[in-house]
């Protein structure tokens, strides 16, 4: 564990708490893409299935349980409890165009042709693109509540910090993980536009609005 990875994991945790806070406080999931949240639930389930047969540490296990549990809880909140506030009209990204290529890529580019490795690779590829429905929805709405932008910032920063963690681990331990590295770069890259507007608007006290 190093400071980059710890901070990254804490940012990831924070992003989920911010999202839960947004939904509970406003009693609404307006502006949140259900499709992205569904994809995250799928990401966590396919990656952390090793929870049952691979022990790393108590920290690792508790985090895995939290990520699976909270993602399913958010799906429940959006689909059942606050269903009326969900706006599927704006959530129009075609996730099959994401799921199919990720599945195909996982079958071709993996560390071993075993169910566990294929599922792991799939989860890493899917995570890289899982934010796309959310960013697409943001684009269509043209604006976002400030708390939603904090959620997106924390979520984007998490993978960005992992890049620093990987540089550090390569230098300190000779650790190499090409699949996670390339997917992590893509994932962080998708946030560039968002980070720019977050920095120039939200951090200066303005509303998050996209140019018309």
């Amino acid at each position: 564990m190093n400071i980059f990875r710890l901070t990254a994991d804490l940012m990831h945790l924070a992003s989920i708490f911010i999202l839960l806070l947004k939904i509970q406080k406003t009693r609404s999931c307006a502006g949140i893409s259900f499709k992205s949240q569904l994809l995250y639930a799928l990401v966590f389930i396919t990656r952390y299935i090793d929870l049952f047969f691979y022990w790393v540490s108590l920290y690792n296990t508790l985090m895995k349980i939290f990520f699976i549990g909270s993602s399913l809880y958010i799906v429940y909140l959006m689909q059942v409890k606050f269903r009326a506030t969900n706006d599927p009209v704006l959530d129009t990204f075609r996730i099959e165009y994401l799921l199919a290529p990720c599945a195909l890529l996982a079958l071709v580019a993996n560390y071993a042709f075993t169910a566990q490795e294929i599922l792991w690779a799939f989860s890493v590829y899917l995570e890289a693109g899982a934010i796309l429905p959310q960013l697409f929805m943001l684009q269509r709405r043209g604006e976002a509540e400030t708390i939603t932008t904090h959620y997106l910032f924390a979520l984007g920063a998490y993978r960005g910090l992992y890049l620093l963690n990987w540089i550090y681990r390569y230098w300190a331990e000779g650790y190499v993980d090409w699949i996670a590295w390339i997917a992590g770069l893509v994932q962080t890259g998708l946030y560039t536009d968002f980070f720019y507007i977050y920095y120039t608007k939200v951090l200066k006290g303005q509303k998050f609005e996209l140019p018309a």
């Binding site: 560390y111 792991w120 190499v176 996670a180």
Partner: peptide
């Protein structure tokens, strides 16, 4: 095939 790195990250 390349060996799989230790899966100790989240």
């Amino acid at each position: 095939a390349l060996g799989s790195p230790v899966k100790d990250e989240l």
